[in-house]
């Protein structure tokens, strides 16, 4: 059996863009989460800048011991992006936990 036939039987399609955008727009961000988004955007651009600031030698020239062609540092950029994603998730999760705690306290006040 063809590999693509096997995939075609089980593969999942993308969700509709309208539904996703509606879900995202309905979600309100608190201070921590806004800070996380802004920080992620800043670190994302820093990753591109660092990749450009610290170029590497081209694939062939590195074995010839003369660095004639310089390449954009893709690995460094991906590394910074990975780190920024972790920082983003950390602050975003803190914001989410605070939001949940606020909801709990509101419900407890109503019960009193």
């Amino acid at each position: 059996m063809n590999m693509f036939d096997e995939i075609e039987k089980v593969k999942k399609d993308f969700p509709k863009f309208k539904n996703v955008s509606q879900e995202v727009s309905s979600y309100s961000l608190n201070g921590y989460q806004r800070f996380a988004v802004v920080l992620y955007i800043i670190l994302f651009s820093i990753g591109i800048i660092l990749g450009n600031l610290f170029p590497t030698c081209g694939s062939i020239s590195e074995f010839n011991s003369n660095c004639s062609t310089k390449e954009f540092n893709f690995a460094l950029m991906v590394l910074v992006w990975g780190g920024s994603l972790l920082v983003f998730v950390f602050f975003f999760a803190i914001g989410h936990i605070i939001e949940l705690l606020k909801d709990i306290s509101k419900k407890l006040e109503k019960l009193k």
Partner: peptide
């Protein structure tokens, strides 16, 4: 710097 970048 070079080889890992090349292979990433």
């Amino acid at each position: 710097n070079n080889v890992i970048n090349h292979n990433s």
